[in-house]
Design a protein around this nucleic acid. Structure first.
Length: 346
RNA sequence: GGAAGAGUUCCCGAGUGGCCAAAGGGGGCAGACUGUAAAUCUGUUGCUUCGGCUUCGGUGGUUCGAAUCCACCCUCUUCCA
């Protein structure tokens, strides 16, 4: 059973931790191709604000699921999983190693844990109606309604979290199941992948935050503001309107706030986002964390790599040996170049 | 030099004698999350051996009791010279 599963390398971590660079390095080493797991990079446009890798940065490595969706379209996890599965099998059929790289934890987990979204197939009309009702009746009333059909979920979701409440009600209307039953039925069965997960992080959180702050400054210098302004003036947006960088700049475009103040808001939002990402990823015990601010010596490298490889026997012996060697070389390199991972800086 | 005002817990800011370790917001930290997820939401945020202990610019008073009243001092802001 397990020998038929498709190997999938996953690089996860908070924003600005260097996922893109590590992904590319791994792809070069193994003849891999990158599949982005990023809810914003998948949209066309906002290239700078969403920190898409530039043409030079990709070093010729094919990147998938970046700039694929028009900005006016609403896109969801369900759509993502569908597309990503296709890409992965396509890459695998060409004899390449698929490497999933991204910071959208929900997308990554839904994909690798094989969450089934077909049970509650929807065109969005139920959802829209429930949202309207919530607007008219208030959160409390919706929470009570949920309690009457699905007390388990009502207990688990605070009445303030209207997004969750509406989804649970939507699932109930669509399937007749409580949200708990729905999840138990559709989650984590028979994943077609054997994953090796690598997580990037810093032991000292302020190091991460510094990188985020610096990166925002660099983005602004590289044209993020102009890029966002053009979108603000010309585009109808779907899910992308939530992109950090874009939404914080709107008060500036309206003349209601200064540029510097808005840039600070972007830094702030990014830091808080990074923290939420960490909260999501930290609970996944499959992730092998690499702390970029730790001074590793050679023996420690061997140890870390052994740990990773023994935890992922499915990946095969040759792969593992290569993998270990690679990680050692690459990490040493990263440190030698002093955090080359930070958005082209210096 | 004269007049008025202000100094509160990481920040902003409420509090004008007890119900104040001190509202509220921000930030930080921790968590939840499975069709909007760069979203949405929750908890927590002086120390503690949980009995207490030390906080509201400083010092000294008044009072049973002060962040709140009085005196002086320090710092800052605005206004008049």
């Amino acid at each position: 059973m397990s020998e038929k599963k498709q190997p999938l390398l996953v690089v996860a971590g908070p924003t600005a931790s260097g996922k893109t660079a590590l992904g590319i390095a791994l792809a070069k080493e193994y003849g891999g191709e990158i599949i982005s797991a990023d809810s914003m990079q998948i949209y066309k446009g906002l290239d700078i604000a969403t920190a898409k890798p530039t043409a030079e940065e990709t070093e010729g490595i094919p990147h998938h699921l970046i700039s694929e969706i028009d900005m006016g379209v609403s896109f969801s996890v369900a759509d993502y999983v569908k597309l990503a599965k296709e890409k992965i099998s396509d890459i695998a059929h060409r004899g390449k190693l698929p490497i999933l790289v991204g910071g959208t934890g929900l997308y990554i987990n839904s994909l690798i844990d094989n969450v089934n979204f077909d049970t509650a197939e929807t065109d969005g009309s139920v959802r829209r109606r429930l949202e309207q009702e919530a607007g008219a009746l208030g959160n409390e009333a919706m929470h009570e309604r949920l309690r009457s059909v699905d007390p388990e979920t009502a207990d688990a979701v605070p009445s303030q979290n209207i997004v969750r409440i509406i989804r649970a009600l939507e699932v109930y209307e669509l399937t007749g199941m409580t949200f708990g039953d729905y999840k138990r039925m559709n989650m984590g069965k028979n994943s077609p992948y054997r994953v090796c997960m690598i997580g990037l992080n810093f032991r000292d959180r302020s190091r991460l935050y510094d990188r985020i702050d610096r990166r925002v400054t660099l983005m602004a210098e590289n044209g993020m503001v102009e890029e966002c302004r053009a979108v603000y003036e010309n585009e109808k947006l779907g899910t992308v309107c939530q992109a950090i960088g874009y939404k914080e700049l709107i008060p500036y475009f309206r003349g209601e706030d200064t540029l510097e103040s808005c840039l600070d808001k972007i830094r702030q939002s990014s830091r808080r986002y990074a923290k939420r990402q960490l909260t999501w990823f930290r609970r996944d015990e499959r992730i092998n964390w690499l702390y970029l601010d730790e001074i590793y010596n050679f023996n420690e490298f061997i140890e870390i790599c052994n740990k990773i490889t023994t935890k992922n026997p499915d990946f095969g012996r040759d792969f593992l040996i290569l993998h270990s060697a690679f990680l050692i070389l690459n990490l040493i390199n990263m440190f030698a170049k002093k955090e080359i991972l930070c958005y082209n800086d210096n």
